[in-house]
Design a protein around this nucleic acid. Sequence first.
DNA 1: CGTCATGTTGAATATCATCAACCACGGTGG
DNA 2: CCACCGTGGTTGATGATATTCAACATGACG
Lengths: 245, 245
Amino acid sequence: MVSKPILGHPVSDPDGSTLRDVAEILRLDHLLDASDPLNPRFTRRRVKAGDYLYRFGEAIDALYVVRLGFLKTVLHNSQGDERIFAFPMQGDLLGFASLCHDHYVNDTIALTDCDLVRIPIKELLLTGYASAQLDRLVCLAASRVVSVERGCVGLAITVRSEARVARFLAMLAKRYTDLGYSSRNFILPMTRRDLGSYLGLTLETVSRSLSALAGAGIISVDRREIRILQPDMLKLPTEFPFSIN
Amino acid sequence: MVSKPILGHPVSDPDGSTLRDVAEILRLDHLLDASDPLNPRFTRRRVKAGDYLYRFGEAIDALYVVRLGFLKTVLHNSQGDERIFAFPMQGDLLGFASLCHDHYVNDTIALTDCDLVRIPIKELLLTGYASAQLDRLVCLAASRVVSVERGCVGLAITVRSEARVARFLAMLAKRYTDLGYSSRNFILPMTRRDLGSYLGLTLETVSRSLSALAGAGIISVDRREIRILQPDMLKLPTEFPFSIN
DNA sequence: CGTCATGTTGAATATCATCAACCACGGTGG
DNA sequence: CCACCGTGGTTGATGATATTCAACATGACG
C-alpha cells in the first residue's frame, strides 16, 4: 500500500527515496535537472498516530518531508500548556526552524499514521556531492514554509473567531485540491482543542464557530467530518491576496 | 560613517560587501571556511525612512540582509487595511518568503534610514561558483527567520494584551543585547498603530498596555522612548522556552 | 456496561474594539 | 512670532466578543 503510486508519482522503493522522489513529494520536481541518475538515497520513516517524530531539545540530525499523513508541531511553555503552530501534511518540510540551532526547537507529533522521507543534516550542509540540487530544493521548500506560516499569523490575528475557522477550512480545502483530493468532503485530523490552540481560540469557541457556520448553511459538521456546501462563503472575510502555498 | 566598523566588524568597502561581510552581518561567520578570498561582491543599497525596499507583486530579483536600520514587512488585504508581520532589523534576512514565488509577496518599507546588502537571486540559485557557502548561509539565516516568526505567532495569539506588549519589548531588548546595544534604554522605531497591527491589537490597546506596564513600575514610557526598569517582569507571562533568535 | 476522551451548548464574566475627546509636538505660512 | 493644522499618542465610556465554568451528550474501547 505504501509502495503504491501517490498522486501519479510512482515510488521506486518502499523503504528508500531518490532525490527525484523527494522533489516530487515537495511538488518541486520541475526545478530538478533531468540528469543525476546516481542520486543519494534517503531512508523512509514511519510514525504511528500519537507518536513523536522528534522532541524538543533532541539533537537535530535530519529534516523530514511528509509523504503521507498529518502531524502537529507543538511548543510547550513553562506553564506546561501547549501551543500548536503548524499542521504539516503531504509535501511539507519539517524541522527547518531547528536548523539554525543544534537541537529541535519543538515537539512534532503524528496525528495519523505517517510516512516521511528523512533528509540527514550532513547530506544537506556538506559541500560537494549532489548537495547543490538538494540545497535548492530545501531552500525553496523552506521559503514555502515561511510563506504558509505568514498566512497563519494573519489567520491567528483576524478578529472574528468565525472568520478564523472559516479561513482555516478554506486553506485546508485548497491544500486538498492541490493534492488532487476532494475539497468538498474531508476529515479534520485534529481535535477541537488542537484547532483552538492553532487559531488562538478555546475549544468551545471553535465548536461554536463550526456550529454557526453549519447553522448558516455554509458547511455541515459531524464531529470530524466536514462537508463544504458554499465554498465561496468561506473565503470572503478578510481575505489575504497571496496564495497559501 | 557608513564605512565605519559596525559592532567590531570592519567593512572593507562602503558600496560593496564580500561574502564574509554578509556572514558577519548575519552573525553566521563562524560557519564560513577560512579560505575564499575571491568571494563574490555584493552591492549595497540604501533606503530612506518611509521609502519602499520592494513592493508586493514586483518580480523578485534579490534577497537582502539588513546592515543598519529598521523596516516593516506589510501585507495589504483586499479591503485595503494592512497587517504587519515583521520588523526586520540588523542581521535579518529579507525576501525569503518570496523566493518560492516569482514575485515579492509583501511590501517592505523602511522605518528609519536603512543600509542593506543585496543578494541577487541568480547568485543564490546558480550551481557552482561560491554558491555552496552562500546557500549554507542563506539556509541558516532563513531557518532563523522561521524560528523568529514562530515566536511572533505565539506572541500574536497570547490572550492578554499586556503580555503581548511585554513580550514584544522583551524580544526587542534581547535583540539589542545580542547586537551589543543597551537593552535597558531604547527607541521604538514604529508607531503604536504599527505595533498594534503586528501584535493583533488596536493602537489604543497598545497605548493602554504600555501605560499599564509603566503604572506597574516595570517600564517607563515617553512617547517612543522606552526604559526597562524590571526586566524580569517582562518575560514572565507565558514565556516560550526557545530563544528568539 | 462503565469509563474516558471528545464534542456541544448555556450563562456569567473579563477583555478588547470602537467611538470620541483631548494633548503634545513639528512644520508651515501669514 | 504666532496661529493653524496634521500626525502621533493618551485616556475615557460603551458595547461586542471570546473566555471561563459548567452541565451534558456521544462514541470508542476494554
